[in-house]
Amino acid sequence: MPTAAAMAPAGVGEHIAAMEGTNPSGDARPDWSEDAFEALRSRGVRHVATVPDGGLGRFLQLCESDPGVRLITLTTEEEGIALACGTWLGGELAVVAMQSSGVGNVVNMLGLPNVCRIPCLLLVSMRGEAEERNPWQVPVGRAVPDVLGALGVRVLRPETAADVGPVCAEALAWAREACACGTGGPVAVLVSQRIIGVKSFAEEHAPSRGHGPAPGQGSSGGRESRPGGHP
């Protein structure tokens, strides 16, 4: 079977290469995805619901390639909160993986795991932090910890790539307490841009273009998502 990169249209291969751990500038950034996946998988997570993000690319690949995990693509992140409540009512845990902007989409639905004390774990790839190149990502990205906190979601922020796996394990334990004894509850693990890398944009790789792409030069603008660390 051809690899995803081989099947992709020109220009997208670079994007996929970035998601596979080598970014366009060749940085070797410690990968957190395998630890996070293993921490969740070994503790009984069989459903992962997502609106994909470049920063989650490797994690989502691991989900997709494990026949014991069902990867559920959503139209909006709030669907994932309701889904996770449903799988738990049916006896199974689900994780909802999203970009930080997706936190803005889940607000009302978080009332459901909160009031019912249902285990619910959000894995959030952050945008809008230091060095963000897209200002439109900043308002919600910056608000994420406050929004989640105000809704009774515990926020955990691993400091390094090596912390992500253990923090996911801790988050899952906390989430489960929601049902077992009512002290835990919905929980979010925020994976920062320091760990993931800052998304870069096509025109920033083309110094001859000056202040932006000239008409007809085919820049992909902000639509490409590269999680790799731009220098």
Partner: peptide, 25 residues
């Protein structure tokens, strides 16, 4: 019966979650 008193827009997804976790139900 699981009754929702909130979470408007979430009923079908809650149902999907139960259905995936309990495929014989």
């Amino acid at each position: 019966n699981f009754y929702l008193w909130g979470g408007m827009g979430g009923a079908a997804m809650l149902g999907l979650g139960v259905a995936l976790a309990q495929p014989r139900r």
